[in-house]
């Protein structure tokens, strides 16, 4: 069994990864109106150059353009794994520190592993499938 010394070290490292990648995600999705960085929403610039209206980051054209980039595919999967581990380990610790009955503590720990692995597999599949779909379109 991996002890907290290692798990907590990974928790901090995952936090650092999230800081960079979620920062990028937030710049792309929620700050693009103020912080305009070239290439974060590839379809927006192209659309405006062609005289089209302003596109939102969640508009399909932008989603498709981002999904087709290997950079977004890799960083998405990395962020997914780091955030799932960081969040679920943190939440499990919060539950643990609340001193629940032993059975509840074990259930929450097991659930965190199942949910974490399940969502990581699902999210990774979705990223790859979206990449292939966007390439094909």
């Amino acid at each position: 069994m991996i002890r907290d010394q290692k798990l907590w070290t990974w928790h901090i490292l995952a936090g650092a990864v999230i800081l960079v990648l979620l920062g990028l995600h937030m710049l792309t999705m929620h700050m693009e109106g103020v912080v305009k960085l070239e290439g974060l929403n590839p379809a927006s610039a192209a659309n405006e150059a062609q005289g089209g209206g302003k596109l939102q980051p969640i508009d399909w054209a932008n989603v498709k353009a981002r999904s087709a980039k290997v950079f977004y595919l890799v960083t998405y999967i990395l962020l997914l794994g780091a955030a799932l581990f960081h969040g679920l380990y943190g939440a499990t610790n919060v539950v643990h520190e609340a001193n629940p009955p032993r059975w509840l503590h074990k259930t929450v720990s097991a659930l965190a592993v199942v949910v974490g692995l399940g969502l990581f597999a699902f999210g990774t599949w979705a990223a790859i499938a979206a990449f292939l779909l966007a390439k094909a379109l």
Binding site: D4, Q5, W8, N93, H96
Partner: peptide, 13 residues
């Protein structure tokens, strides 16, 4: 001492 604190009683709490 590491053996004694590397688990759930350790400083990460």
């Amino acid at each position: 001492r590491k053996e004694a604190i590397a688990g759930e009683r350790g400083p990460w709490r």
